[in-house]
């Protein structure tokens, strides 16, 4: 069976331009070679810290950002290489929910008007039919039809997430990219939003690409998780095995740093320093500069994902030794 979505060696360079009489501005390599498949019906988590390229990757999959290199296939059909506008037409089955759905609505337009617009753009039938679809979508996310008359600023954060979800559910997508769907929400509201996401997925047979930095949520929600660092995937594994036994030193550090509700386990690995700028990437393994296990060879050899177990891939040349309990090297200063 062909996977629902296949990404093959996707590179995305942002900005950068030639200038007259001045040095050129080099592009930022936001995504540097991501290969990934997404199976129908799964929830794939995309985690990493700010600037790791997870949002850029999501926007590239959606088609808002054009890939510099690489190909994207949807149900086996190539949908990459087109201009952003055409790309969106080819990828109608993919939809995106913004991190801040309130700001994703035109402040001068009522909710009903904004929701209807999505249907108009995609050419959905007559007015009465559109009304019906909108009411169904609002009901599906637990809002009553009177919400249509109101304006974005009259809703709370949790309600706006529901509206954002309703907006794309009407378009009947197969894949939904959720960009930080719970950031900025209170814990009690977050739980209801997550619950809604799971419920809708079950009802509509959706596939989620779940972009998040909240590891507690990812752990509970996702089937598989890809850990990104500076535009590359450093580890890709089923959620259960990743949280039980992460192999890449960065993934380990990320998991160790995430606050957990159950105290007791002390932090074993705390990485030092901060990631280098994506505009000036080092040679070799991008994490080598902060890695407690780095060897001189790590700074020259570029790392690619290699399978370590069925469905578990890691981009580290020393994973075997690290898994076997190798001590940190002195190289990390």
């Amino acid at each position: 069976m062909t996977p629902l979505l296949e990404l093959d060696d996707i590179h995305v360079h942002l900005g950068g331009r030639k200038r007259w009489f001045q040095p050129d501005i080099p592009p930022v390599k936001a995504v540097g070679g991501v290969t990934l498949t997404v199976a129908a019906g799964e929830i794939l988590g995309l985690v990493g810290e700010s600037g790791c390229g997870k949002t850029t990757l999501g926007r590239t999959v959606l088609g808002l950002q054009r890939e510099t290199r690489g190909s994207i296939r949807l149900r086996g059909k190539t949908v990459s290489g087109a201009r952003p506008r055409d790309a969106r037409k080819l990828r109608r089955a993919i939809q995106y929910v913004h991190q801040d759905p309130g700001a994703a609505l035109d402040p001068w337009w009522s909710i009903g008007h904004s929701l209807e617009e999505g249907l108009v753009i995609t050419g959905h039938g007559e007015r009465s039919r559109r009304r019906e679809i909108i009411e169904q979508a609002l009901a599906a996310v637990g809002l009553d039809p009177t919400a249509q008359r109101r304006y974005p600023h009259e809703f709370s954060g949790g309600q706006l997430r529901r509206i954002g979800l309703a907006r794309i559910l009407m378009l009947d997508p197969d894949i939904v990219i959720l960009d930080e769907p719970t950031s900025g929400l209170d814990m009690s509201v977050q739980a209801t939003v997550l619950n809604l996401l799971l419920e809708i997925r079950a009802r509509r047979d959706l596939t989620y690409l779940f972009i998040s930095h909240d590891l507690s949520v990812v752990r509970r929600l996702c089937d598989r998780v890809a850990v990104m660092y500076l535009g590359r995937i450093v580890e890709l594994a089923p959620a259960a095995s990743l949280f039980e036994r992460a192999l890449h030193p960065y993934a380990q550090a990320l998991l160790a740093a995430a606050p957990r509700l159950e105290p007791g386990e002390s932090r074993t690995i705390a990485i030092r320093g901060e990631p280098p700028s994506a505009a000036r990437l080092p040679a070799g393994c991008l994490f080598a500069g902060r890695c407690p296990y780095a060897e001189p060879a790590c700074r020259t050899e570029e790392q690619v994902l290699q399978a370590v177990a069925p469905g578990h891939e890691v981009a580290c040349r020393r994973w075997r030794e690290i898994a076997a309990g190798a001590p940190p090297t002195a190289a990390a200063a």
């Binding site: 814990m187 009690s188 977050q190």
Partner: peptide, 16 residues
């Protein structure tokens, strides 16, 4: 109720 909402604790995401 708040602790039950935390993803580390909750069985089902119920919220308050």
């Amino acid at each position: 109720a708040l602790l039950a909402c935390h993803p580390d604790r909750s069985e089902h995401f119920t919220g308050i």
